[in-house]
């Protein structure tokens, strides 16, 4: 295996597209090294992107935040402005692994690892986040939900990689929240998860919402019926029940060692309700 740490995006792109064998990106490494250890992946080339300009920083841009692909979960939690604007995204990213893993793991890595259970992905999707894709040609911005193709697979082409993720500007009375269910209190992979991002009008009525679900389908589910269920409401009990039902209906999970179909469908609705309540309260809504 070769290890390269290019200094420019162009060089990284060149290395990746020139490689004839298996090429992989190294950012936080918290998934990559596990896969290498188990023999799941045996890369011929590993490109460390942490020396590329902008990959280690969080920068304000157009009222929003551009977060480098090498920014760790711990770094996210230390950015007070980001936390205030996107608490759901930050808490989702901070749920990945242990404190130790937080020292290294990145949201972009979480996205590109393409696990259906990735914690930060539903929150990013609910937030309407976009990633910047670099490659041999010009960079492009792509909605987060367009990246995963299925468990372990992304829609990125050979030689392409993500350099940053962008979270848009926040207005007043907006908030997001993310919840997942795990059997223990920490250290597990999500059995089901839900992210809710909403904005309220001056009367506390939900104007707009995005609801995204994790671990209940091969890729993250952006659940429009769930959003519709709460838009125009003050998140009364009836709206919450409709929200839960819509989420359970949209869930197409599998039975595995972590949970059953039935369990995941149930719990994803419960999580969506609870996340919606948190987001609503954060946005200033009164219950």
């Amino acid at each position: 295996m070769r290890y390269e740490k290019p200094q420019t995006v162009a060089e990284a792109a060149r290395l990746l597209s020139a490689e004839k064998g298996v090429a992989r990106i190294l950012a936080g490494g918290t998934d990559m090294l596990v896969q290498m250890k188990s023999g799941m992946v045996e890369p011929d080339l590993l490109v460390d992107i942490k020396a590329l300009p902008g990959t280690r920083t969080i920068v304000k841009e157009a009222g929003g935040f551009r977060i480098g692909a090498g920014v760790s979960g711990a770094q996210l939690s230390e950015d007070a402005d980001l936390k205030a604007a996107w608490p759901g995204v930050v808490e989702a990213a901070n749920l990945i692994g242990s404190t130790q893993v937080q020292g290294r793991c990145t949201m972009v890595g979480n996205l590109c690892n393409a696990s259906p259970a990735a914690d930060s992905v539903p929150a990013l999707v609910a937030a309407g986040a976009k990633v910047r894709v670099a490659g041999r040609g010009a960079g492009r911005d792509v909605a987060v939900e367009e990246i995963p193709a299925g468990p372990g697979k992304t829609k990125l082409k050979k030689g392409e990689f993500i350099t940053s993720v962008f979270l848009p500007a926040r207005g007043a009375r907006c908030a997001d929240a993310y919840l997942r269910f795990i059997p223990r209190t920490e250290m597990d992979i999500a059995v089901a998860s839900a992210a809710v991002n909403l904005s309220l009008d001056e009367k506390g009525v939900i104007k707009d919402a995005r609801v995204a679900l994790g671990a209940v389908a091969p890729t993250v589910v952006l659940c429009e019926p769930a959003a519709k269920a709460i838009i125009g409401t003050r998140l009364d009990d009836a709206a919450l029940e409709k929200l839960a039902a819509a989420c359970s209906a949209a869930a197409k999970p599998i039975d595995d060692k972590r949970g059953s179909v039935e369990y995941r469908k149930d719990v994803v609705g419960v999580l969506a309700k609870r996340a919606a309540r948190i987001a609503y309260t954060r946005a200033g809504g009164q219950k």
């Binding site: 920490e186 250290m187 597990d188 992979i189 060692k257």
Partner: peptide
């Protein structure tokens, strides 16, 4: 199916 500490879930401090 679960030969690792990820899915063989022994109690962690916060549990």
């Amino acid at each position: 199916q679960n030969p690792g500490f990820l899915d063989y879930r022994i109690p962690v401090a916060s549990d």
